[in-house]
Design a protein around this nucleic acid. Sequence first.
DNA 1: ACCTTGACCACAA
DNA 2: CTTGTGGCCAAGG
Length: 106
Amino acid sequence: MGLDPGSPFVAAVLDIVDSIPPGRVMTYGDVAATLGSRAARVVGQTMAQFGADAPWWRVIRAGGHPPVDHEERALEYYRAEQTPLVSPLRPDAAYRVDLSLARWRP
DNA sequence: ACCTTGACCACAA
DNA sequence: CTTGTGGCCAAGG
């Protein structure tokens, strides 16, 4: 179940993700919009199924949060790539990427 | 053709 | 911060 692996949409999404430079990010919606689409969810499905060999941590949600259930692994990449983060005000709150600095627009 | 399922999004309360 | 609502779109049943 899932997307067609041969779909042009899938290939296009992965091309864009591969083009995001280290330390920068795009939102799911940004990737879709770059393809002239509003299918942010389908971008998410694409990453879930075919994103393992792509820099998946550079595609995040519109609020700056990394993909659900991948926050810990993503953080390691952000530290290594010097991706600008927004430190939580409260220690228990989730971290976010600083989109105003890190957002990449092709 | 209808319904459900998602690494989603915007907005309101 | 949290929920809820409505919208989006491809794939599969």
